[in-house]
């Protein structure tokens, strides 16, 4: 999952002013939200086979990042639960929430998503989608019905749009 726009410049923990109670209330849900978006069954690089080939193995560093994210997320959830149960601890534990938040942001911004494995998988998908686009164009050209031709050509145009958007991230 790509880093959120606000995650591009993680704030170093412990250098800023201590969070107010209100700040802690804001920071904890953010930490949970960030932690939550890293959890789940997503197996990076282990998607569907591309063009009948064996899917590339998950990138080792990506697995480590996911593990670190889950570890931090678990601890952040513990901190959040403690603050929720004992609100007066909020100010005292705010630094931990800020720390975990900063670490999660840093991990999210760590450029491990451009691994060779992912690039190959993406290239394979884009190649297959372009083949689909050309295949639809070819079928549209042979269609006896103008309505069918328009539908198939429009489908090809839709594929082309999505390929163009997905290709933007590879440049």
């Amino acid at each position: 999952m790509p880093a959120p726009p606000s995650a591009s410049s993680p704030r170093a923990s412990g250098r800023g002013p201590a969070l107010s109670r209100r700040g802690a209330v804001v920071a904890v849900p953010l930490t949970l939200a960030l932690a939550g978006c890293r959890w789940g069954p997503e197996a990076d690089g282990a998607g569907e086979p591309v063009s009948g080939t064996t899917p590339p193995p998950p990138d080792a560093d990506r697995v480590l990042v996911d593990q670190a994210t889950a570890l931090i997320g678990d601890t952040a959830a513990l901190v959040a639960a403690a603050v929720a149960a004992r609100p007066r601890l909020g100010q005292q534990l705010a630094a931990f929430a800020t720390l975990h938040d900063a670490h999660l942001r840093h991990l999210a911004a760590t450029p491990v998503t451009t691994s060779a494995g992912e690039a190959r998988a993406l290239a394979g998908v884009l190649k297959a989608e372009r083949r689909l686009q050309e295949g639809l164009i070819d079928l549209a050209g042979r269609a006896g019905s103008g309505i069918l031709a328009r539908s198939l050509a429009s489908m090809a145009a839709g594929v082309a749009q999505h390929v163009a958007v997905a290709s933007e991230g590879t440049r």
Binding site: Q133, I137, R150, S151, A153, S154, M155, A156, A157, G158, A160, Q161, H162, A164, V165
Partner: peptide, 21 residues
């Protein structure tokens, strides 16, 4: 049709399932 559909993206258009229909 395909070129025009993709060109829309450069002007802030979003991909759609069936461009032009």
């Amino acid at each position: 049709l395909v070129d025009s559909a993709v060109r829309q993206l450069g002007f802030g258009g979003l991909p759609s399932d069936l461009p032009g229909t």
